[in-house]
């Protein structure tokens, strides 16, 4: 099974719905160690994404992903705009000239997205950021693709690893982002960016798996 532009648009609607459903949770996580806007920022961003991909005539996965990236950059406002925006733009670049994304291409897109997030945010594993969810997700996705997994299998593996990666941020002391100003006091709380990364990957995986 592969993923066309149309499948991707459907998956993005699922992401927007998941983000809206978890808005309060994300904002609460961000209230404790950040600036309490993560849930609302992402909700607004993915709402704009759905409007954008519904209104524009986007017939390739790369075109859809690029539209997502630019829309998030323009609408989110907080750090997650440039970070997720860069992630989707890099993913778009990784799947150019493909009309359908298969398992290996999905893993490659995730790997490119991680590269973008690391470059933009200058964060490493263990800094208590979305990298802590995305990085193990990429490893799992690559392994699943190498084992012959299709898009659904690759995304399911990524989502699973991202969940665990997000949970691993709880004991960490933040070294990047707004939470880093709290120093030791940031320990004991789940990182909202890692949580939203896991949420987005889970929604993408569920959408792919439902087909």
């Amino acid at each position: 099974m592969t993923c066309t532009a149309e499948d991707l648009v459907r998956a993005l609607r699922a992401v927007a719905a998941a983000v809206a459903d978890h808005r309060a949770e994300l904002t609460e996580l961000d209230r404790v160690i950040g600036d309490a806007d993560h849930g609302e920022n992402l909700r607004r961003g993915f709402l704009a994404v759905v409007t954008k991909v519904d209104s524009a005539d986007l017939d390739t996965p790369t075109a859809v992903l690029k539209a997502v990236g630019t829309t998030l950059i323009s609408t989110v406002g907080g750090a997650s705009g440039p970070l997720y925006g860069t992630a989707f733009l890099r993913a778009a670049n990784a799947v150019t000239e493909k009309s359908e994304v298969d398992g290996p291409a999905a893993a490659e897109a995730l790997r490119a997205a991680l590269g973008g997030v690391v470059a933009r945010g200058r964060a490493e594993i263990g800094d208590k950021t979305m990298v802590d969810a995305l990085s193990p997700a990429v490893d799992a996705a690559v392994a699943a693709a190498e084992a012959g997994g299709d898009v659904a299998a690759v995304l399911a593996a990524a989502a699973e690893a991202a969940d665990r990666g997000a949970e691993s941020t709880t004991p960490l002391v933040a070294r990047k982002g707004r939470a880093s100003y709290l120093g030791e006091r940031s320990a004991g709380h789940l990182d909202p960016g890692a949580r939203s990364t896991a949420l987005i990957l889970r929604a993408l995986a569920s959408s792919a798996g439902a087909r």
Binding site: N41, S74, T75, G77, G81, P82
Partner: peptide, 12 residues
């Protein structure tokens, strides 16, 4: 300020 007028940054 953010695109919605709150705190944040506005790319455009």
């Amino acid at each position: 300020g953010a695109p919605d007028g709150g705190l944040g940054t506005d790319y455009d």
